[in-house]
């Protein structure tokens, strides 16, 4: 049993306005698996994601990727890590440069991550996520939310990452499109062995896609464990209230009775 790919330990982050966004947050992700981070607004899940991605510096704690400590290191020494850890952001409309075509944006991304790939290679990746070549030259405002999220996934996969942070990646999509993107993410994981840190406020989505779940509230982890267990038998009061409010859970109960 190899060591986990990502180990987050005891993260603490307090913003200048006094809000404690991360209160001793710890979790780990195994190679090729998915951990779901569930919480409502203000739970600190986004802050945790940003720390893992190197976009924010915590007050204390440790983030170890493939055995290497990421915090308190110079950016230039972590170039290769930044390639292998990618992100799919929440808002499809702002996740691409509005002034560049999708193709150009992805080319730029390849350059930034020092990935050697040519135009045909990019088109092939887009094809793989279900975006035809005709759409590659389009600008973000010409594509729908679902299409843009697929493009964002393609972009994330270009540098051959081992870990992808999906930050509310399906939250802005219609439910039927959400299902397509969730399927795509699962296929990609099966084919490429990518690990996911899947952040969402939707417990039903997280239960579906994650094998382990961490529930956050006001910066603290209130419960964690295998997804199926949390769904079937939540221990913490907050988890229970989240579950009670989740429509899919209500439907499940209604159908069972």
């Amino acid at each position: 049993m190899s060591a986990p790919l990502l180990i987050v330990e005891d993260l603490v982050k307090r913003y200048p306005n006094g809000v404690l966004a991360a209160d001793h947050v710890s979790f780990s992700v195994d190679e090729g698996s998915t951990i779901g981070i569930v919480g409502e607004s203000g739970s600190g899940k986004s802050t945790t994601a940003r720390v893992v991605l190197g976009l924010e510096i915590p007050d204390s704690g440790s983030v170890r990727y493939a055995g290497r400590e990421l915090l308190r290191r110079r950016r230039s020494s972590l170039r290769d890590v930044r390639r292998e850890v990618q992100v799919v952001p929440q808002n499809p409309q702002t996740s691409f440069n509005p002034r560049a075509s999708i193709l150009d944006s992805i080319r730029f991304h390849a350059r930034v991550t020092r990935t050697r790939i040519d135009r045909a290679g990019i088109l092939e990746m887009l094809e793989r996520v279900g975006i035809g070549a005709g759409n590659a030259a389009k600008y973000p405002h010409e594509l729908s939310g679902g299409q843009l999220q697929r493009c964002a996934i393609a972009r994330a996969l270009i540098p051959a990452p081992r870990l992808v942070v999906c930050d509310e990646a399906v939250s802005a999509l219609d439910k039927s499109v959400q299902a397509q993107v969730l399927n795509l993410l699962a296929d990609v994981q099966r084919d490429l062995g990518v690990a996911y840190v899947f952040i969402s406020h939707d417990l039903a989505v997280v239960e579906h896609i994650a094998s382990d779940v961490v529930v956050m509230r006001r910066g603290r982890i209130v419960e964690s464990g295998p997804a199926a267990e949390i769904w079937a038998d939540p221990q913490h009061e907050y988890t229970r209230s989240l579950l009670d409010a989740t429509p899919e859970k209500r439907i499940e109960r209604a159908l069972a009775s």
């Binding site: 729908s144 679902g146 299409q147 219609d174 439910k175 039927s176 499109v177 959400q178 299902a179 397509q180 969730l182 399927n183 699962a186 296929d187 994981q189 099966r190 939707d202 039903a204 989505v205 239960e207 579906h208 896609i209 199926a228 769904w231 899919e248 439907i251 499940e252």
Partner: peptide
Amino acid sequence: AGLLEALPTPGVPRGSLRAIPGRPPG
């Protein structure tokens, strides 16, 4: 029916959600 089947219902194996192919007309 498609909308109902696309919901991430517990027990559905990952990658097998019954998504409605394509997208709604803009």
